[in-house]
């Protein structure tokens, strides 16, 4: 699965798929890592389409955050639906990611 990806003024934006789970975790992690390492380390993930995420999906996002921060960058999220938001609260991932309502707000906040 190839993620939809664009770069806007040095900030990478990736549209995540409907599901982020074990089958795609290794590939997803590799794609996000490559985007971060080839870019500025500033990544915005669009979760608008993502209705389901399992523990492997959580691990993929945490891995990308760690890669970004090692580069002095960050990973921001937007478009999170209720199901994924509840998962983030259970796993406390909302305490380590900055989460925005929409793309414009995430872009505005990214240094």
């Amino acid at each position: 699965m190839q993620f939809a990806h664009e770069n806007r003024d040095g900030i990478d934006i990736v549209r995540l798929p409907e599901r982020l789970m074990m089958a795609d975790a290794a590939d997803a992690k590799a794609q996000l890592k490559a985007i971060l390492l080839n870019g500025s380390g500033r990544l915005i993930l669009d979760l608008t389409q993502t209705g389901f995420m399992d523990s492997s999906g959580c691990g993929t996002l945490v891995g990308s955050l760690q890669t970004a921060r090692k580069q002095g960058g960050d990973v921001y999220l937007f478009g999170m639906g209720n199901n994924v938001r509840a998962l983030f609260e259970l796993t406390k991932l909302h305490t380590i990611f900055r989460i925005f309502d929409d793309e414009k707000a995430a872009l505005r906040a990214m240094p």
Partner: peptide
């Protein structure tokens, strides 16, 4: 027990129980 938020793995059983 849910691992710390910056852990890359180890959440599966905690999610089942929750």
């Amino acid at each position: 027990e849910m691992p710390p938020p910056d852990a890359e793995s180890g959440r599966g059983i905690a999610m089942i129980r929750a």
